[in-house]
Each structure stands twice: as structure tokens, then as C-alpha cells.
Design a protein around this nucleic acid. Sequence first.
DNA 1: TTCTGTGAAATAGTTCACAGCG
DNA 2: CGCTGTGAACTATTTCACAGAA
Lengths: 220, 220
Amino acid sequence: MNVSDATVARLPVFLQYLVELAGDGESSVSSDRLAELSGVNPATVRRDLAGIGITGTRGVGYDVKYLVHEISVILGLNQEWPVVIVGVGNLGRALANYDGLTERGFPVHALVDVDPDLIDSKIANVVVEHVRHLPEIVARESIAVGVLATPSTSAQEAADVLIASGVTSLLNFTPEQISVPDTVQVRGVDLATELQILSFYQQRSTAARAGTGLPLGDDS
Amino acid sequence: MNVSDATVARLPVFLQYLVELAGDGESSVSSDRLAELSGVNPATVRRDLAGIGITGTRGVGYDVKYLVHEISVILGLNQEWPVVIVGVGNLGRALANYDGLTERGFPVHALVDVDPDLIDSKIANVVVEHVRHLPEIVARESIAVGVLATPSTSAQEAADVLIASGVTSLLNFTPEQISVPDTVQVRGVDLATELQILSFYQQRSTAARAGTGLPLGDDS
DNA sequence: TTCTGTGAAATAGTTCACAGCG
DNA sequence: CGCTGTGAACTATTTCACAGAA
């Protein structure tokens, strides 16, 4: 089964609209319709689906419920990936209290910090532990994902400790970019990088708009 | 000048290491060295740099400071993109107090919410205004970027209001995926989508590791 | 007749390999 | 001699276009 990175990046988009369609009571959907909603080419939809082993019905389309189920399985959304949040300052606390992560299958199983005043306090029903216990915590809670919410200056150090403790993915909410040894598969949501890319496209779209009479133009 | 999306995605990584090299007092860097640090092929580095009009010196390499400057300009990091945060609950408040956005050139110029108890209160030195005034706020503060920090259920609605108010990029910290009309160029950092992609790779790396004796294997 | 599934063409992106500059 | 800049080969991804299933 052939799942390219490009396909993986589209699946969540497809899934979003499929869930919507399912909610609207639609039982089947054509590649044309799904392509239009998702903003991609219909052939790409068909290739992506064929690539992950999903087959439709000629003359009809694809079964919405089946699609939702299969894509969820492919993405691993039927399972939970417990996370540990490193750093329980403002941001860490907000993330701990925030349902977003849990709702999406990333329950917060542990919180760590270095501040003695915070250790043993309880946030969102989870006891804050000392960073030094990370290896045991990761093993005990079967933690796969580390959330970086430390001050910028400690982000790289925290990332290193997480990786050393056995965590295999990082979610970085720090403004810092962090580097991880390439021996470990890590997918990082790196806000700093995203912001720089955002800046590029924002600049480009602003430049494209300059000179037109429109306060807001569509991009070319 | 040819700047592909693939190149744009790599520039922040290059920049990160270039800043590090500059800090270490390195005045020049070869494509081989930068490639090794960034985890890409040296030819790709040279192509990327040539593509954005950066030229090096044969036998020597590229000038680190010049590279940092040029890439910063390309990415638009020399300018600020004022943001408005929509929703000042836990997460919105944390983001408002958080220096990450400002440090990276996205100063928080406005905060909006719908809760009358919050309107006119001051968070991080910014007065909370009512969402209904968004169009004026966006114009007044020259806001380019909207940060979504509302409860999930209001995320789409907030996104629509932002777009209608003239914002051209969104940063979505909500667990929801939002759809934006494709007539407007929007680059969304969508946590929900990122989490689903993270889940996929996490699952894949876990599967790859199963059966090996290693608690942590490198990915293939 | 509608819509899938897929060869084949087109396009994009990466990597090799090396001529040639400093 | 070391390292850039880039043709050319290669690989990946997208899109077209259409045969054929329901």
C-alpha cells in the first residue's frame, strides 16, 4: 500500500468534509464532489483513495461512512497517544486545561516542570512531577508524544530529555525551533517555523494585492 | 525568481542553523555543511539558494551573515504582522501573555471576545473589544493575521468573521478544522490537521519499531 | 449514463556528476 | 584544491483522458 506524504497531508482535509457530509446524511460522495470541497483535483482524490486501498462504486461514488472509517484507521485516529506536557507555566497550564488535545486523541497523562513550587500541585487533575523522572513517566504512561511548553531558552534541552526518555514525537508550542537527532522519527509542529512560512505567504499575498484597487484580492 | 513551496519550507530550517553558525562566529558555510546540519542534500541547498538569487563563492562557500539577511528578507521577517486574537478564554489569555508571537514578528495588537464581562478588561496591556468591531479593528491596526482561540464550536464562525473583516491569514489554535473560502489566500496552522498527521507518523513509527528489540528504533 | 480506476503524459522536485571559478 | 552552479538523469506527484463497471 502506497501512502505518500502528499496523500497523508490531504487525508485530514478529506476526513473533515466527509464527517460534514455524513452529518448532512449524505451516504455517498463522488470524487468530483470531494475534490471540489477539498480544493484538489478529482483524479488526485481517486489516486489517493486507491492508494490506501479504498475502492468506490462506478457510476455512484464512494460510501461516506466507509471512507470516514477507513481514513480514520489509516491516520490512527482510533487509538490514543498519551502526551506529557513539559513546562506548566502559562502556556503549559492552558494546554493542560484545554480539551483540544484530549478530544483529538492526545490525552494529557503527565505534566512535568523543574520549579519545586509546582511539583506535586495538581493541574487539570494531573499531578506535576519533576522533569528528572521523565524516563519513568514515559514508560509508566506509555507516552509517545511530548508537548514542549517551556520558556524558549529551555526548549532544546527539554526536547533532548524527551527524546532520551523514549518519546518519539514532539509538539512544540515554544517560539523556538528545536533540532532533534535524525535517528529518531519526530514530527514536530514547530510554531516558529510555521510563523516564518506564514510570514512568507502573507508577504507574497500582500505584494500581489498591492496596486489592485481591492482591499482584499484573491491570490493568483 | 523561482521559490517553490518546497524551498519555502526549507528556508526556516536553513535560517535556524545559519543563526547558530553566526552566533558561533562562523563567517562562511559550505552547502555541504549547511546540508548536513539541515538534513538535506547539498545539491538541494545550492539549488534553493540559487533559486532565491543568493550566490556563494566557489572554493569558499556562502557568507553566513549575508545568507541570514537575505533569507530573512525573503521570508518577510524584517516586518511585523500585527495579529488579533479571537477568544480570550484560557488559551487566548495564554497566547496574549505569551511572548512567542511577538518575538517572531506577530505582535498582538488586539483582543476580541463576545463575553460582556471580558470586554474592556485589559490583558497583556491590550483592551478586549467586542467581536462585532472586528472590521474597524483590522483596519485601524492594519491586522493581517487572525489567531483563533475560541471554543471549538465557534471556530468556523470566528474564521468567517475574520476573513470578512479583511484578515488574510489564520493561525488556528482551536481543535477544530476550519474551512475558508478559496478566494482568499489563507495559510492556516491547523492544530487538528497537524495532530492527525502526527498520529499517522506516530502510528507508522510505532509499527516499524514493533518486533525489533529496540525500545526506540530509527525510522526507515 | 455516471463515475471509478488507471495507463500515459505532464509537471515538479531531487540528486548526480562535473565543468569551471576563486 | 575546494566548492559553487547547473545540465542532465532520475524520482515523485499531479493531471489528463478514457475504457469499462454498475
